[in-house]
Amino acid sequence: MSAVNDSRQYEPSSRRLRLVYDGECPMCRRYVRWQRIRTDVGELELIDARQESEARRELTAMGIDLDQGFALQIGKRWYHGSEALHRLSLLGTRSGVFNRLMYRLFASPGRTARLYPLLKRCRSGLLKVLGKSPIDNLDRK
């Protein structure tokens, strides 16, 4: 797999950037509101995983559990969970405290993989406290 900063992989005409996230999670909403993508990368389409959409149907058909993490599409390829967070951090600007911090924390795929389970537990706990149901896009009972 080629690196994210490989400019050939990110030619504007050949890529689609979509982020599917939990719109009822305050932590997730704040993250997508504060995250800024570099202008040379393109525009990121934000999609609420709790709403019916083409992206949600596609991810469900692929067996990607949106309760286990958000999903990022770059071109035709989907990334999920820690890999999505890592890729998104590399695509982000370095302007502002939040974006610099996200880059420093998640630029390393290994560090991101180690930290992501903690982030998932925080999200799960927060949703329970708020009385929110799971996304359950895979219809697991």
Rank of each mutant, 00 (worst) to 15 (best):
R77V: 14
H80E: 10
T39I: 08
G125K: 11
S7I: 13
G96W: 05
E58M: 01
F70W: 07
D65R: 09
G23N: 07
P109Y: 11
L101M: 13
G92E: 03
K141G: 14
L130T: 09
R114G: 03
E24I: 11
S13H: 05
L85V: 15
R87H: 13
R29K: 13
R121K: 14
R38W: 00
A107S: 14
V129Y: 04
S124Q: 14
G131T: 10
Y116T: 04
R33Q: 14
S53V: 01
G110C: 10
R121W: 07
V97Y: 06
Q73G: 03
D48R: 06
L91F: 03
D40V: 09
S124F: 04
K120W: 03
Y31A: 12
S82V: 08
C122R: 13
A61H: 07
M1L: 12
G92L: 03
S13Q: 12
W78A: 10
M62R: 15
G81A: 15
Y103A: 08
R38S: 05
D139M: 13
G81W: 02
V32K: 01
Q51K: 14
W78H: 05
T93I: 10
N137E: 07
R33Y: 05
Q51P: 00
I74A: 09
G125A: 14
I37P: 00
R36T: 07
A55Q: 07
L130Q: 14
I64P: 00
W34N: 12
M27Y: 07
D40S: 14
V32P: 01
H86F: 10
Q73Y: 02
A61Y: 01
V20N: 02
P109A: 15
R56T: 07
K76V: 10
Y31T: 14
S53I: 00
S53A: 02
L91V: 10
N137T: 11
G23L: 04
I47N: 00
I47L: 02
C25E: 09
Q51A: 15
L46N: 01
T39K: 12
F98H: 06
L119D: 03
G63P: 02
S7M: 08
S2T: 13
L17Y: 05
Y21L: 06
Q73H: 03
L19T: 03
L138P: 01
D22L: 05
R104A: 15
A61W: 01
I47G: 00
N5W: 03
K76S: 15
V97W: 08
L127R: 15
S89R: 03
G81I: 09
E45C: 07
R77C: 06
A71W: 00
R18N: 04
Q9I: 12
L119W: 08
L19Y: 03
Q68M: 11
N99V: 06
P117L: 09
L90E: 12
P134H: 07
M1H: 09
S95M: 09
D136M: 08
Q35I: 15
R30I: 06
R18D: 06
R57D: 11
R121L: 13
I47E: 00
S108Q: 08
A71R: 01
S108I: 08
S108C: 10
L72W: 02
S89Q: 05
G23R: 06
E58S: 11
C122H: 07
R30S: 15
L126C: 15
